[in-house]
Design a protein around this nucleic acid. Sequence first.
DNA 1: AAGCAGAGCAACCGCACTTGT
DNA 2: TACAAGTGCGGTTGCTCTGCT
Length: 339
Amino acid sequence: MISNNNEEKETCELRKGTWTPSEDAMLIEYVNKCGEGNWSSVRKNSQLMRCGKSCRLRWSNHLRPDLKKGAFSQEEEKLLVDLHAKFGNKWALIATKLPGRSDNDIKNFWNSKMKKQLKVRSPNKHPPKMVIQEAEREHFSSSSPPPPPSFHSVLASCYPKNNLTVEPPPPNISAHNLKQPNQNSSFSYTNNNANFMLPLTPMSPYYRASPPSSPHCQNSGLLNDVVMEGNSLRGKGKSKMDENETIAMAVEKEKDYEACETRKNPTSPQLIPTEKNNHGAPMPQLDDELIRLLKNYPLYSPVEKWYPAVGFETQVHDEGFTDDDQDWDIGNIWNIDGW
DNA sequence: AAGCAGAGCAACCGCACTTGT
DNA sequence: TACAAGTGCGGTTGCTCTGCT
């Protein structure tokens, strides 16, 4: 982009910082007169010395007449947790489901809530780096390492609805000790008085059903979907595809997958048989190459425990965090309905 | 009363996408 | 098709308020 001296000069004259009531009034007047949008022309058509971006932000976050102010209700909070589990940090998308709340509001609320829960739920303010390193060391040392749950099982937890095959707990680790500290957010186990934790990052539900990647349907397309997921994250989710389109895409993927299932050789030696899930839809199959990748890809990034449950029946306390003090039966972790 | 820490919030920044020429 | 301008989004920063010591 080319910027000339005039533009630079004008930029310098633009006001920043907190909006004054008179500025608000000017902006409201402008919107009443010209409607929302055309933010770049606000300066031409009003006395405001603010850039268009700033005006748009001020309008959408504070001046919009349909804006709801004040604390989030319990219903809103619950909805937000659900929506965040589904969509992640897609604040704009979440905002469309929470009428009267701006994306900035929601983001701020979530972040402050997150901070609070981090504090409440993590007595050790800093992640147990030493423990993680120890886990790594043990995993890679040859002397009787207690291997952590494979990345495969971790990934499987990201698709609980599909009831993916899960490897049994590592040797020397009882199911009793295999705790689910905060539902499916992370995955910790203890061995020899050492704690290990693996992250369980929820995946976008859009990609849970994978289309065939070839006419022979040897692959489920899951690996492609992981790449797609990565790409969408890389693009910061700024695609203009709206939710309906996204859902439509997911439906198409489901259809593709079903078509694939009907063509597939039933004796194909895949991990996952052609079972139906709780909703009668066929289960996806894991790509061989993905399985190889997962089995050779230990993951030790520590994650915090506050991440809310996805589809679990959770006990929500007044503070908004969930009850994780119970021991988890390993069998319960993977049989989740309604995710 | 002063200092400090944390929470909550408003606003900015940088990037990516869309649209117009 | 390429480029510039406009727009939207998510991450981050910094200010203000409040409660605690």
